[in-house]
Design a protein around this nucleic acid. Structure first.
Lengths: 228, 228
DNA sequence: ACAGCAAAACTACCATGTTAGATGTTAGTT
DNA sequence: AACTAACATCTAACATGGTAGTTTTGCTGT
């Protein structure tokens, strides 16, 4: 007999659906949502939708305007900068710890992730490449074995994941440089040179922030549509 | 004329009340809550209480057990360690940035905070001392001017604030060492020696973690009571 | 055609009712 | 005394109705 895992509540399922719709690009950034419409579309009452939206707000994916409506988050340049910097702060700090605490498994996970990315790159599979990238950075976060930091990371990474799919519909042109940066981090980790690894990692994330900035300033002239 | 700030919703007020009750020690750690009882006690309906509890759960102050009840969070040694480490990660990273970006105002705020702490120490005012300490660490966080990191910090610091009031009812015996550590950080900041400041700060937070650990292992034999 | 303005539609907030699941209690059996 | 199961009680999850604030719409006069 195996212990039963708790069935997910309606609110959780609802939150997952909406989160996926945002991150996958189904719901445009800044688009208007509505408890009632979402409830009708998902076939549930307004209560779980309301709870889900509140949860997604604390994840940074949704902003709720009192008496006006709920909206998919709409990043400006400053917020994106801050998100990337926060990400860099967490990843670099955790990388320092991981190199000391779990050097073996950390290195192995990083290598697996880059292998997946190379495979996806050869197969021209943008989706797989993105998955590998997430796996790479996730391996860094897991290295310190600190659940609090993991939670904090997941909160800030959700909007960034959404941004990635919304801004980069095709595989970026900078994948070569990106791959090299990943390898640079790995090599430094392998050599247990924490400071070098950290500096490569910070630079890597900074490049991503730059890419976001240029894309955002181009697409700044879009207007909000109703999605739900 | 000043821009009016949005009137707070019932849910926000409710959340503030409950949060204050937890952080101030009014509600014991691990004690059972109940939407209905809280609603009756606060004179509101269950809806805002429910929303508030959900928000407090994402702050780490409350844990909700499906169909069973809500409880004030109950930390174990591991979680406290992780909270402190996460705090150290954020504060040290942000301190590095702050020294570069806002050296002047950062230093000024740190000095004001320690001045407040010394005043409180001379006046035997534990409450004021704690307030000064919070102001000190808050000054560090504000130094980088990154709202995302601020939010992340506030989420992790709430349980730690609660722990402080619940575990240290009297002013700690280690205030001398603590004050010296604060001064060590300030001096390093003044000299713009980021690495030295960071190492002092990390050590300071690590000492706090140790204090939590010893107190927790002593008080581990307490049982849960109903509070509301 | 356009500005002003009032009515209608829409929204989240809050209150309350209902329900399924979890827990505590007690009567009944061995 | 020990175990069991029916029962009562308590809980949060979910559904639904009312309300006040916001936005849109559509009419009106110019």
């Amino acid at each position: 007999m195996q212990r039963v895992d708790y069935p997910k509540s309606l609110m959780e399922v609802t939150a997952e659906r909406i989160r996926h719709a945002i991150v996958s690009g189904e719901l445009p950034l800044g688009s208007k949502l509505s408890e009632q419409r979402l409830a009708d579309a998902l076939g549930v009452s307004r209560s779980p939708v309301r709870d889900a939206l509140a949860a997604l707000q604390s994840e940074g994916l949704v902003t709720i305007s009192p008496k006006r409506g709920s909206f998919v988050f709409m990043p400006n340049l400053r917020v994106v900068d801050e998100l990337c910097e926060h990400r860099a702060i967490l990843e670099t700090a955790v990388l320092r710890l991981g190199i000391v605490r779990n050097h073996g498994s950390l290195l192995r996970n990083l290598e697996n992730a880059t292998a997946e990315m190379e495979r996806a790159l050869a197969a021209q599979d943008p989706h797989g490449y993105t998955a590998g990238d997430h796996r790479f950075h996730n391996a860094i976060i897991m290295g310190a074995e600190n659940r609090t930091t993991e939670r904090s990371y997941n909160l800030t990474i959700s909007p960034l994941k959404a941004l990635r799919t919304h801004l980069f519909t095709i595989m970026s042109e900078n994948t070569d440089r990106s791959m090299n940066e990943h390898f640079a981090v790995i090599n430094a980790v392998r050599a247990k040179d924490a400071e070098l690894a950290v500096s490569h990692l910070w630079e890597h994330i900074e490049h991503l922030a730059e890419a976001f900035r240029t894309k955002l300033s181009v697409e700044a002239s879009k207007n909000t549509k109703r999605a739900m």
